[in-house]
């Protein structure tokens, strides 16, 4: 049985760990709230943009644009979005695994795979697995800004248009609820779009629909990227919050157990002392 002092020392250390996890949980919760607000704020823009895209597609009939062209797939780019830091439970590991599975699937079909790593963790992971990394982007804001998304999508659009990749996928954690995330693969390029219903209103397009489209599509990609970055960040904060909540709970449990064995060994020591004294007194009397 460990001594009373040892147990006391362990209790102290667990308590200070609990303080840290508690603080991290609170920080993650506040960041989560901020990102969630950002997600909600970005919704009107996304909806409107989609609406206009549908209108153009519906009224212009056949549309062509370099960003919509399907090419025979010889090379793909995979954008893996992870966190810069760990301590978020299985958050990073799950997307990384999914990305690697995708890469293997493409490799089997003799399609070249290139990674664009967003976030430190993913970058380190891919490097360890000796995957090809084209670029890495680290240090994204906790609440992503639109210009960060713009920078990233420009890089990707440029390589797509240059013919470096025939398809570009995003692998990230979708935000389901605060405590639940789901790793998903989504095709970013060529853009997938739905054909909308023809509108009753006759719109004047200035310039022609085709040209409006060529302004709109890059915007659309920027926005998709922004949306996904924000969502991934929300997932990250959510995952971290959950992980830290359970860490705090575990610490609580551990403290309780330690406290119990502390009391027990304290009691044992007292009992021992009493029996020693009684034994000593008996010996004297005899």
């Amino acid at each position: 049985m460990p001594s009373v002092r040892d147990i006391k020392r362990r209790m102290k250390s667990v308590e200070s760990i609990q303080q840290i996890t508690k603080a991290m949980k609170m920080v993650a919760a506040s960041k989560l709230r901020r990102t969630q607000t950002a997600v909600i704020r970005s919704r009107p823009y996304t909806e409107k943009l989609q609406e206009i895209l549908h209108k153009i597609v519906a009224s212009a009939g056949e549309i062509t644009h370099p960003l919509l062209v399907e090419r025979p797939v010889k090379a793909v780019g995979i954008i893996l979005i992870t966190a810069d830091k760990g301590l978020a439970g299985g958050y990073n590991a799950r997307v990384q695994k999914l990305a690697l599975e995708e890469a293997t699937r493409f490799a089997e079909q003799e399609i070249e795979v290139d990674f664009i790593a967003v976030g430190n963790k993913g970058h380190d992971f891919l490097k360890r697995r000796e995957q090809k990394i084209k670029t890495d982007i680290v240090g994204l804001n906790d609440v992503p800004t639109f210009s960060e998304a713009q920078r990233l999508s420009k890089l990707i659009v440029d390589s797509f248009l240059a013919g470096e990749y025939d398809r570009v996928y995003l692998v990230y954690q979708e935000f389901v609820t605060t405590v639940q995330q789901r790793p998903v693969v989504k095709q970013l390029l060529p853009l997938l779009y739905e054909k909308g219903e023809a509108e009753e209103k006759e719109y004047i397009y200035e310039p022609a629909p085709q040209e409006v489209l060529s302004i709109l599509l890059p915007q659309y990609i920027n926005n998709t990227m922004f949306h996904i970055l924000t969502e991934t960040k929300a997932s990250e904060h959510g995952a971290r919050m959950t992980a830290m909540t359970s860490a705090t709970d575990n610490a609580e449990e551990m403290i309780e157990k330690l406290n119990l064995s502390y009391n027990r060994s304290r009691q044992a020591a007292i009992t021992r002392e009493i029996s020693e004294i009684v034994g000593g007194a008996d010996a004297l009397e005899a």
Partner: peptide, 19 residues
């Protein structure tokens, strides 16, 4: 500032989409 030059919008403007 539209792509084709300055553009004004008043009440009851026709439906329009512009860059």
């Amino acid at each position: 500032p539209a792509t084709e030059g300055s553009l004004g919008v008043l009440y009851n403007h026709a439906p329009l989409i512009t860059g």
